[in-house]
Design a protein around this nucleic acid. Structure first.
Lengths: 174, 174, 174, 174
DNA sequence: CATGAATGAGATTTCATTCAT
DNA sequence: GATGAATGAAATCTCATTCAT
């Protein structure tokens, strides 16, 4: 069992995280396109070139930011959300989780709101997939609620999920 | 009475509109940042330099696209929305108007969803003001509904407006 | 005998002069390169395109400004300068003429001082020839003075002429 | 004691100088305005972008060329000029210094003669100040000579300095 | 003749990425 | 592994010149 699988962090993992956090702060401050790689490097406290030892480039960096944020979001709250007994309560917990998670890291929330929208234009399927994972989780809850008769069936689950996301995303700003 | 005051269009007006429409198509296709001025020129059927006879640059072009879209949106539907007798019905008509307007011009809808989010980073107050105009209209309806006792008072009108926008904006995509 | 040869001015001549004067004012204000053709047009009170009916382009316009200024300078003062009896007095009158001519039209003086230096780089032989005409007049006076024994012979006439020009040109500014 | 304080040159200093020299050659060949940044880069043997790591742009580059040339001119000859015992001899040494300095670097002399005249139009006070420094040195010599009774007092020192400059500048060309 | 809207070649400048140290 | 100077492709914008009206 190596250090990674034991949940410890190699030096490389630390560097990766350090850069990702620099990227979040930098993207939030100026938006993806206005952010120079050198801004990220400065925010992360590393040299420009170092970024390329850990990421493929600026695009990859945004993809990883989004991916890792969703992963950690779900890692943290999945159990809590799913152990609620009704679909309505699961949705409530999901909303609560989203708001508290985004509320805790306003920079991340900004990146989500601003750059996630823009990303399909240049990240292509990668970003679509990341976002889809998020929606699917909500859609699943809705679908199960509809199957059990608990929720109305006049909306497609995915549409419902999008509406939920729309509200949450907008709310986070205010 | 000259041609302009009779609602007709001068050549310059036509050119302006031609370029704005090219810009909408181009922004929708690739996103604001990936769109080159020459893409817009090509989409509009004019030379690159012509753009600068009518707009200050790419930034101005996006600002004008957003501004003009909101103006024409509201010009078209204001009477219809406000003549409804209850706040609930006004909101309903607003939603209907938004969806039909955006549904008719998917490119414009895309620009709204994608680039309006990004625009505060570089358009500054201009874009904030444009967006704010939109929200204020919804917020006004909500506020009047609350004043008349028709709507619940546990939300600030502006927040409610943001939620409405969030849902609509997200729905338009699907 | 047509109107031109009688010293009268055709409408075309007037236009030409009008444009030349606009050009002098515009060049003096911003320098040849910073001056746009449209600046000249505005200063002359004509449309941009009109300039091309009378001149070949911006370069030609500067060449004509310089040429016409020297012609009119010499037209005006040649007799006065040459009728002086000694070389020294001729030089004195030349200096007097230069200073009064340039003093009367500060814009023209500025164009001379600033753009004449730059012009060989893009007007080529044209500008060199214009300048050479000026120098030759001074050099001739010097040469005749040397021939008659009135002036020292330890300088080439052309060099002497250049020194005279150097001093005068610099003086005009102050 | 680091390398810089020992009069040695850091890599950055070398690059700077390398670019400045490329700029002098390029400006001399085509004049400031006809010179493209890429011409300078080629003359200096660096990539276009490298220029911007050391200078703010073309304008800054010309200002630095002029400034550095005057500094090195005066660094080199100040002692020699000022140790002469009479004002007349000081002026003589100044002339000698100017001619030998400019004679050694014809490209620099060309830049001086051509672009220094044009520069007030876009370098503004920067170029005026650079030129003024030069004139002041001559004017000081003249003023001291006048104070001691050695030189005539019928000219303002600054005017005298301008005349000296005018002659020298013109002479360097021939 | 005169106009001025339109053109598009060409110049400046930025910045993601590489690679010698 | 880490650095950051250097690169050069790519994008914006200007403006001399043309030509349909």
């Amino acid at each position: 069992m190596n250090s990674k699988s034991r949940g410890e962090s190699s030096r490389a993992d630390l560097r990766r995280r350090q850069i990702l956090e620099g990227a979040i702060r930098a993207f939030a401050a100026r938006g993806f396109y206005r952010t120079r790689v050198s801004d990220i490097a400065k925010a992360a406290g590393v040299a420009d070139g170092t970024i390329y030892l850990y990421f493929e480039g600026k695009d990859d960096l945004l993809a990883q930011v989004l991916r890792q944020a969703l992963d950690s979001f779900w890692d943290r709250g999945e159990a809590y959300v799913l152990e609620a007994s009704s679909a309505a309560e699961q949705l409530g917990r999901f909303v609560e989780l989203h708001l508290s998670y985004m509320g805790e890291d306003r920079d991340l929330a900004t990146v989500f709101q601003v750059d996630l929208r823009h990303s399909p234009h240049f990240l292509g399927d990668v970003s679509r997939k990341i976002f889809r994972d998020y929606l699917d989780r909500v859609a699943d809850i809705v679908a199960r609620g509809q199957a059990s008769g608990e929720l109305r069936r006049d909306l497609f689950p995915l549409q419902a999920a999008q509406m939920v996301f729309g509200v949450l995303d907008q709310l986070v700003t205010s």
